[in-house]
Design a protein around this nucleic acid. Sequence first.
DNA 1: CTGAAAGCGCTTACAG
DNA 2: CTGAAAGCGCTTACAG
Lengths: 323, 323
Amino acid sequence: MAAVAGVSRGTVSRVLNGGHNVSRPAAEAVRKAIRQTGYVVNQHARSLVTQRSQSVAFVLTEPQERLFEDPNFSLLMHGCTQALAEHDITLVMTIAGMPDERARVARYLTSGHVDGALLVSTHRGNPLLDALAAQDLPVVACGKPIGYERRVAYVGVDERDGARQMVEYLTGLGRRRIGMITGPLDTAGGIERLAGYREVLGAAGDESLVVTGDYTRASGEAAMERLLAQAPDLDAVFVASDLTAAGALTVLRRAGRSVPGDVAVGGFDDSSIALTSQPALTTIRQPWARISSEMVRLLLGLMAGDAPSAVTLPTELVVRESA
Amino acid sequence: MAAVAGVSRGTVSRVLNGGHNVSRPAAEAVRKAIRQTGYVVNQHARSLVTQRSQSVAFVLTEPQERLFEDPNFSLLMHGCTQALAEHDITLVMTIAGMPDERARVARYLTSGHVDGALLVSTHRGNPLLDALAAQDLPVVACGKPIGYERRVAYVGVDERDGARQMVEYLTGLGRRRIGMITGPLDTAGGIERLAGYREVLGAAGDESLVVTGDYTRASGEAAMERLLAQAPDLDAVFVASDLTAAGALTVLRRAGRSVPGDVAVGGFDDSSIALTSQPALTTIRQPWARISSEMVRLLLGLMAGDAPSAVTLPTELVVRESA
DNA sequence: CTGAAAGCGCTTACAG
DNA sequence: CTGAAAGCGCTTACAG
């Protein structure tokens, strides 16, 4: 390659890396030779010296199905891809749902393939976090990573306040028997959204009105059925995710309860499903674009040597038809 | 590291790579030192000499949304992850829907980050294929890559025969006005499923009965509406994908046509949506598990120096409620 | 502006 | 079984 262009490897390298300190004719010759030979740098050789791979992983620590069911992940990943592209960094996705996959992924991530990792949907005690932290890989989580709040950077929304907004809105509508379908209680979103609900309802809180879900659509169906059995007189439900709320809607329809007439339904996320569900969901908007750009900003910071920090973003009530 | 264990770098490397020609005590010492220091190999240094990265890319050349909408991708990716894990290879996913993303991804793939690529949903004239072929990266496509059949390995199903099975089944049911919603006509699945339909219906083929779709749910809704307008007397539809068929079902319901009473609906894929749709879809099963294992087998072969080859798998009619 | 040279951290014949 | 040494293909001070 250097031979074809009639210059030294050093000069080739210089034009490849910005072209500083290279004469016009030399740069031209190199570019021409690259076109002729179809030369592509060997990323390993480059990374071995730069200590950078110019790529970052988007790690999903969830059974695979969730990714494909929940439209939020898509949004988040797209936003991150865009933001990283501006810095000439490629995003690759990796799934570590099962324990054995986790070990493999941990090895992949820590052995230099990537310069950092964006972690999505982290449950309490996620073992991957230990492995990554031990190797000092820059990591930023989406949502507060319980148990690692201090050591791992993250960006999340004010979950509790979002829940509060929704429950206050339902209360304001005159609803008195307000149920809740929570998220998984080993995640910040699961815990905090429930806390917000309790904060508003206070002593009025009735345990038969609360059922635990796990953010999936299926859990929304199951939980709604239980809720209808335990508290047939409920006139509203706050559901911790739109996808789960869509499941609840199906059950409500089947049970002959009109929404919002008989039962008002409030979701969380403002994901695409909120618009396509029947009726369209009143929900709490998470600023996905902002979340992804902040995640990337923090990650780039960590890669540059910054200490881990946390960003908390506000949410917003979006009123549609379901409540 | 070698110092901690009291051996040479060579010996450390030997235990890391299978432990052949290493004495028990030496191996023990190395393993202990690894535990103590948390040592992880530098993948770049290793790959620079082995010319292998032990990872493979799952490349989606589709706008991001499709991945998350279509359950088939999930299945396929999971199968490939499993099959590769047996060979100690990590699968990373990468999306190249937009032209600028494509350039970035091409660079990523050809610069040594991965040992090969699994290509999903390739339309005619996919520019990524040119870039990869030029760099001799082992590639296997899912479905016949039009225009690259001879140069690129692939595994697909007998699309035409699958379509034929479905249309013959519908004919056997006594349906006489059988419409079709096709896939995108720049993919093998789009073209061949239509060809199978035409083959069975022959001269009876009426152009007003055929509408082009693109495998999405939305295209199923739009196409079904057109079909109902163009050919209000149709008594069956063959839809080139289950997801699209689910869209068609929605429109049919809205139009007051009972399924399969008024209109029989046949899908293609046997994806998870075929079971959850109302009514459950009669469809053509694609053997996803088999497809992913064959894709991996071919890729491993290419990586070992084999010439590209193609595998065509049979499909199977699955009768449920919609027809 | 440019080339020669060192060095990134491994693996792997090669001797022993 | 084990160590010393070459070499993988780059980047980057260092001279000039």
